[in-house]
């Protein structure tokens, strides 16, 4: 059964408004792929009413970590959870990233806390001896997280902020384009991206321009997370698809960006 009670191992603030929560998942962790997510009930009351989806950030042998940003009720409540508290979790859910074989290097593009699922992917890529270049963009330096950890992992990290408070001043896609121009054999490079829709739309455009395969991880409001409510629909070239079941990872060419 994919519903379980998970004991919280730790819940640490890693930057203003950003937390990493680690929970025990001995049976689940080994079946979890980067890009998959968990639908978590943060309160036994009806406030907030629904579960909230969070991507696997780190997948260890016996535990899962999620990285989240406090943006509203549920994430606020989550940020107050303590070691030993119990979470009601559904998962792993969704398709996850599929690593293509034969790629020599991979571009990972994150907008703010969109870096959450890309860390687990970077870990897998580096373990597989491919090169991972990760691009993290944010409004200000406060919105950039996980960069140090990714460096330690052995990924090449590039940062941009809109106000120039860290890294390159401007949009992250500008940085990615520079590397696209520089890199030869782009056909061997796949892009994986996660972040706000406007950013993903730009990434999809540049992938098309440079003829690079590109996968994006999408977000949509969810009620169930398991494919029963049909609430999390996104428009694709072959009709509506479900972010929770057919995604959250899609081929960028499939999506009709609005």
């Amino acid at each position: 059964m994919k519903q379980f009670k998970a004991k919280i191992i730790s819940n640490k603030k890693i930057a203003p408004g950003h937390y990493i929560l680690s929970f025990k998942a001995p049976k689940t962790a080994k079946n979890t792929k980067p890009g998959q997510f968990f639908n978590i009930r943060v309160s036994q009351t009806y406030e907030p009413f629904l579960r909230r989806p969070f991507s696997a950030h780190k997948i260890a042998r016996n535990k899962i970590e999620i990285l989240y940003k406090v943006v509203g009720k549920a994430t606020e409540i989550l940020s107050m959870k303590k070691k030993g508290d119990i979470l009601d979790v559904l998962g792993p859910l969704g398709n996850g990233f599929d690593l293509e074989t034969g790629v020599s290097s991979v571009f990972l593009v994150a907008g703010g806390h969109g870096v959450a699922p890309l860390y687990a992917l970077a870990e897998q890529i580096i373990r597989g001896k491919s090169r991972a270049l990760i691009f993290i963009g944010g409004k200000t330096k406060k919105h950039i997280v996980s960069d140090k950890e990714l460096k330690e992992l052995g990924a090449k990290v590039y940062i941009s902020t809109e106000d120039g408070s860290k890294g390159y001043k401007g949009l992250i896609t500008d940085l990615v384009i520079r590397h696209c121009k520089a890199a030869s054999r782009l056909a061997m490079t796949t892009i994986y991206a996660c972040g706000p829709k406007p950013m993903l739309k730009e990434v999809a455009k540049l992938a098309r321009r440079y003829k690079m395969p590109c996968r994006v991880s999408l977000e949509e409001y969810m009620a169930c997370g398991i494919g029963t409510c049909l609430g999390c629909a996104v428009k694709t070239r072959t009709g509506f698809k479900l972010v929770c079941k057919d995604g959250p990872v899609f081929d960028s060419r499939e999506i009709i960006w609005t």
């Binding site: 009806y46 406030e47 009413f49």
Partner: peptide, 23 residues
């Protein structure tokens, strides 16, 4: 039936508002 455009579900105080559109 292809159903209605997203967003299709939204939480309300003590409930859920949906417009799936019989997808």
């Amino acid at each position: 039936r292809k159903g209605n455009p997203p967003p299709r579900v939204i939480e309300t105080p003590g409930g859920l508002l949906n417009s799936i559109g019989l997808d």
